[in-house]
Design a protein around this nucleic acid. Structure first.
Lengths: 238, 238
DNA sequence: TAGATTGTTAATCGATTAACAATC
DNA sequence: TAGATTGTTAATCGATTAACAATC
């Protein structure tokens, strides 16, 4: 849970700030206030100031945050400067989609090769990235000094693929398989949890549709009114 | 933040329990202990008991949780029983991948149609689901009583597509565009945040590679040792 | 200077964990 | 009964928010 000084939740919000700042017109020396950022992103104003203060000193009293400086600090802190070169393992539907998705470049991610065990796929390429046999995974990672792996294999294959990545010196793994994997100390396995988001949506719908049905949750009628408090009320900032 | 009696974080863990239980062999009357579940998923034992107690009474002292009962309770609580029929808006790379991904059925999600505004796509179909023009989105949702929408459009189009979904009576939206959207009370917009996961990985790599570099984070050397505490130590449960 | 805005310290809130009571 | 395991109450921990100090 420790993330080395910065809270995990703050860290997860940083790319959201960055993405928002990137949508703003790039005017020389332009600044933006914490209030404006908070309002645009639906966050608390103090939270924005605190988050940004941990990674940047681009905030100036009476002025706001110098946009260009803040973006630079965010990118630096997140490690986007040195492009993270990655391999992807498992060229199924999801793997293909991630390979084809161009938006990752914005987050400093650069997938350089894909791996699979189906001979029909080996030797092909996806948008210029070769598809190689998983057999070559450890040696490829070693040789190319890859430290980041993306796992889009079926659950049953996930642990052995993770092991191969670790053998190749990979130190951070983005796991899309819905299983918990074991990794040695120092190797971070981050599970991407589509099912968890879906649970929030599905539960919300169930609540909205049958507010008095759930027997395990006597207070469930409240679910309908769950979203009542919009943090910034009606007020808008420029 | 309120989720009607159950904590948001607990709710997000429920599908993880369910997915794990589904991997177990289906033996008549079989049971499993909280300790075994915790160990398999890398969670705390008490946390598992507390989470499960909020949605099920399948737990029996001295016995454990009756697997079949627990799965039923989880599915019921999450609203998977009544298949959630959904529409997807934006048939780009990501949209196509989600349409093609068969795993959603496990989470009670059933995408019945896709929408786009590119005439080349209209009239085609993806795995049997028709691709229609966004113009028809509100009326389609009304007619088919769709309450769940998936947004995989570019950021610039997201708000107007959300509006169209809301107009059609949709009450929960899974938003893959990296923007904050405004929705009326009662409509839940859940943003899927790939960039946030990526931030954790990227930061971990940066820490591992240059532990003394970061100036904003004097305690950053600790980042290297971030994962030291594996909650269950070496002990395994049967 | 006065006013606006950031940064920080203290208070609150919520989630996790530890200790224990209940139960088969 | 004794032992194992669940469920719950109280304590701890961490994150958010409110109040205020600092600064340009």
């Amino acid at each position: 849970m420790e993330t080395g000084g910065i809270s995990k939740l703050t860290l997860q919000r940083l790319p959201i700030y960055l993405a928002y700042l990137r949508t703003l017109p790039a005017e020389e020396g332009a600044a933006i206030s914490a209030a404006a950022i908070a309002s645009a992103l639906g966050l608390g104003e103090v939270q924005v100031r605190k988050d940004l203060a941990t990674v940047s000193d681009a905030g100036k009293p009476k002025v706001g945050y110098l946009i260009a400086d803040l973006m630079r600090d965010l990118e630096h802190f997140l490690g986007y400067g040195t492009r993270n070169r990655a391999v992807l393992v498992g060229v199924g539907n999801l793997g293909l989609a991630l390979l084809s998705y161009s938006g990752f470049a914005d987050y400093g991610l650069n997938i350089v090769a894909a791996f699979d065990n189906k001979s029909a796929l080996i030797g092909s390429n996806v948008d210029g990235r070769p598809v190689l046999h998983v057999r070559e995974l450890p040696s490829f990672c070693r040789r190319e000094e890859i430290h980041l792996g993306i796992l889009t294999v079926p659950s049953g294959a996930a642990q052995s693929c993770l092991n191969a990545l670790v053998e190749g010196g990979v130190r951070a793994v983005w796991n899309f398989a819905p299983v918990h994997l074991l990794a040695p100390d120092g190797v971070l396995v981050q599970r991407e949890n589509m099912a968890s988001s879906l649970a929030l949506l599905s539960y919300h719908l169930k609540q909205a549709e049958a507010p008095a049905q759930s027997k395990a949750d006597p207070a469930c009628g409240a679910g309908l009114r769950a979203e009542e408090k919009t943090k910034n009320g009606g007020s808008r900032h420029g």
